[in-house]
Amino acid sequence: MKFSKTIFTILLVAISTVSCSSDDGADGVDGQTGATGPAGSANVIYSAWITAPTAAAETIDGTSGMSTTINAPELSADILAKGTILVYVSFGSGTYTLPYTSTAGGFVNTITAISTLQKIKLFRFRHDAGGTVNLPTTLSWRYILIPGGVAATAKTAKLDYSKMSYEEVCAHFNIQ
Rank of each mutant, 00 (worst) to 15 (best):
S4L: 15
K5P: 03
F8S: 12
T9Q: 06
L11R: 03
L12C: 04
T17C: 07
V18Y: 12
D24Y: 11
D27F: 07
Q32K: 09
T33A: 10
T33Q: 05
A35S: 13
N43A: 14
V44D: 10
A55K: 00
A55L: 10
A56I: 14
A56D: 08
T59E: 11
G62R: 00
T63C: 05
T63S: 08
S67A: 15
T69Y: 02
A72N: 01
L75W: 00
S76D: 12
D78F: 09
D78A: 13
V87W: 01
Y88Q: 02
S90C: 15
G94T: 14
T95P: 07
Y96V: 11
Y96K: 06
Y100E: 05
F107S: 09
N109L: 00
I111T: 14
S115E: 10
L117M: 02
L117E: 06
L117V: 06
K119I: 08
K121P: 03
R124S: 03
H127F: 05
D128F: 06
D128Y: 02
D128N: 13
A129L: 09
G130E: 07
G131N: 04
L135F: 13
T137C: 03
T137Y: 04
L139W: 07
Y143T: 01
I146L: 11
I146D: 02
P147F: 04
P147I: 04
A151C: 14
A152D: 12
A157M: 13
A157L: 14
Y161I: 09
Y161P: 08
K163R: 12
V169H: 01
V169P: 00
C170L: 09
A171P: 09
H172G: 03
I175E: 05
